[in-house]
């Protein structure tokens, strides 16, 4: 554990050098989410109604703010390019002779980046929550909030392993940017961070239920707002654990096969 904390510390210092870039990225995402919020304000005003698709205006604003926070800090894939380059440019050789697990090294770096982005960006979200305080809904209960945090954490793990798998296919491909980009595009809608998934027509909801993405934003936010029943929460956590286990299994298998195929020169 100490080794990975040291990795996290070194990564922290490395990313601090680019804090302005990270900050601007967060601000950009923040503005995009504000626009979505403006869109929903407009819809509620036009419809002159209290509820749209089962959401009151405060619930919708809270949902979108929460989705923005999760999107900005949890659902960022920082390691994809690095893993791809480490494998294809041979830097992996240097890691393999060191006494640590390389996947855990990448995981430490990934979580460190998320933590730093969180620290740099949470201030802006707190200001906007303060400005929109009339429309901000607090967690349904303390238990809901704690379970929400756990669901967000598991969503982050799920996200990491999904991108990790599509990064270590670099053992077989020269460039993995394409597949990772496809995943990111699907994620932009299927996590529910733009629009709550329950507002989609039934056919789309059926598709989203078959994918793991809803556990990254939609599911935690349903818990936060108290819109998920106990049965749905238990079923949701069971499913997300199955997804994580499956992805870890696939990643271990791919890693083993990849290492057998791996060859590099230099370094």
């Amino acid at each position: 554990m100490k080794k990975y904390l040291a990795v996290a510390k070194a990564t922290w210092q490395e990313y601090l050098a680019y804090r302005t870039n990270l900050f601007l990225e967060v601000i950009g995402g923040f503005i995009a989410q504000l626009v979505i919020i403006a869109v929903w304000f407009s819809i509620f005003k036009d419809l002159k109604t209290e509820v749209v698709g089962g959401y009151s205006l405060p619930e919708m604003i809270t949902y979108l703010l929460g989705a923005g926070i999760i999107n900005s800090f949890i659902l960022i894939a920082s390691q994809g390019d690095e893993i791809n380059d480490d494998i294809n440019q041979g830097s992996l050789s240097g890691f393999l002779v060191k006494p640590f697990s390389v996947p855990l090294y990448w995981l430490s770096r990934d979580f460190c980046r998320r933590a730093l982005t969180f620290i740099l960006g949470i201030g802006e979200y707190l200001v906007i929550i303060l400005i929109l305080s009339n429309y901000f809904v607090f967690p349904f209960s303390l238990t809901n909030f704690l379970v929400f945090c756990l669901a967000v954490f598991l969503g982050g793990i799920l996200h990491f392993f999904l991108f990790y798998i599509f990064s270590i296919i670099a053992f077989w491909m020269d460039q993995t940017w394409g597949p990772r980009f496809v995943i990111r595009v699907i994620m932009s809608i299927a996590t529910g961070s733009l629009i709550p998934l329950s507002l989609f027509p039934d056919t789309w909801q059926l598709v989203f239920n078959l994918l793991p993405f809803k556990f990254m934003a939609y599911f935690p936010l349903q818990i936060y707002l108290g819109k998920a029943s106990l049965t749905e929460i238990i079923l949701g956590f069971s499913t997300v654990l199955v997804w994580i286990s499956a992805l870890i299994g696939i990643s271990i298998w791919l890693w083993g096969r990849g290492l057998k195929k791996y060859s590099a020169y230099g370094n």
């Binding site: 680019y18 302005t20 870039n21 990270l22 900050f23 601007l24 990225e25 601000i27 950009g28 995402g29 503005i31 995009a32 626009v35 403006a38 869109v39 304000f41 407009s42």
Partner: peptide, 21 residues
């Protein structure tokens, strides 16, 4: 970072500016 910032600014144009008040 400014490049990413620019991307998000452009994306705000996806919606009609009439939604802003």
């Amino acid at each position: 970072g400014l490049g990413r910032f620019f991307e998000e600014i452009v994306r705000t144009g996806r919606f009609p500016t009439d939604v802003f008040k």
